[in-house]
Simulated assay, not measured.
Amino acid sequence: MDKVIIAENLSLSYKEFETIISKANFSIDAGSFVFITGASGSGKSTLLKSFYGAIEPRAGSLMVGGVKMNRISTGKLNFLRRHVGIVFQDYKLIKEWTIEKNVMLPLIISGYTKDVSGAQVQKLLGHVKLIHQSGKYPPELSGGEQQRVAMARALAHNPILILADEPTGNL
């Protein structure tokens, strides 16, 4: 089975002498469903951030979807992010955009036509039972509804990898 993530002696930190994760070794097979658990502040979100390039490895190596995350170029990072779906802990919905347009964002970035994007968004909003909210804006929804919008957005472009930080926190 192909490995979608490979970490070798991976160390992550935000400051030079404040290591959050030290010398981690693991791999994740394509098609796997993996939960990362631990106490608050133990580095779960930091690890997820490294998977989509928001934090670079301090030491060791990290490969995600065949892309080496150490000193990754902007072009390769953009390529990777077009193939990853992310449900952020705080959702990161655009407050000035409708729910429909928020879900459409990855499709817009990937260059899909309006017809294809619209059909995909309607399907996903139906799946998360929010089709009736498509014209509303994020502040008009409950926390759980916003989280379902974030999940639909993460799935919109049929990603090869889905990362979810506290995906059931408000559900």
Rank of each mutant, 00 (worst) to 15 (best):
L141M: 12
L141G: 07
L10V: 05
S40G: 05
K101T: 11
T37Y: 06
S32D: 14
H127C: 10
V4M: 10
R148K: 15
N158T: 11
K129P: 00
L163P: 07
G144I: 11
M1D: 10
E56K: 07
F35H: 06
F35L: 07
A7L: 04
G65C: 07
I5V: 12
T168Q: 10
Y52V: 07
Q146T: 08
I6R: 09
S61F: 03
S134Y: 13
E140T: 13
I109A: 09
K76A: 12
H83R: 15
E96K: 15
E145V: 10
H132C: 00
A39N: 02
Q147M: 10
K129T: 12
Y91D: 06
V121A: 10
K129R: 15
Q133Y: 10
I108T: 12
G75V: 01
G75Q: 07
I108N: 08
P139S: 10
K123H: 13
H132A: 12
Q147W: 03
I5N: 02
G66F: 05
T19G: 05
S134M: 15
S22K: 14
Y91H: 14
Q146I: 09
V84M: 05
P159V: 05
H83K: 15
V116R: 15
H132P: 00
S50W: 03
M1I: 13
V128C: 14
I5E: 02
A164H: 08
R153S: 05
L130E: 06
G66C: 09
R71P: 00
V84D: 02
E56P: 00
G31E: 11
F26Y: 13
K136C: 04
N158M: 01
P139L: 01
A7F: 04
I109M: 08
T98H: 02
K136E: 06
P139I: 04
K76R: 11
P138A: 10
S61I: 07
I162T: 11
R82L: 04
L161E: 06
M151A: 15
M1S: 14
Y52E: 03
I20Y: 01
K136V: 00
M151I: 15
H157K: 12
G38P: 02
I99K: 02
F33P: 05
E140S: 15
V64G: 05
N170W: 06
K76S: 11
V121G: 07
E56C: 00
M104P: 01
A156G: 02
G126S: 14
T98L: 04
A152W: 00
K129V: 12
K68C: 01
S40K: 06
F26N: 09
L80V: 01
S73D: 07
I162Q: 05
F33I: 15
T46G: 06
E18F: 03
H83I: 01
H83M: 12
K44R: 02
R153E: 04
T74D: 14
L105M: 14
R153P: 04
V149F: 06
N78P: 03
I36D: 04
R58Q: 14
F79A: 13
I28D: 08
N158L: 06
K123R: 14
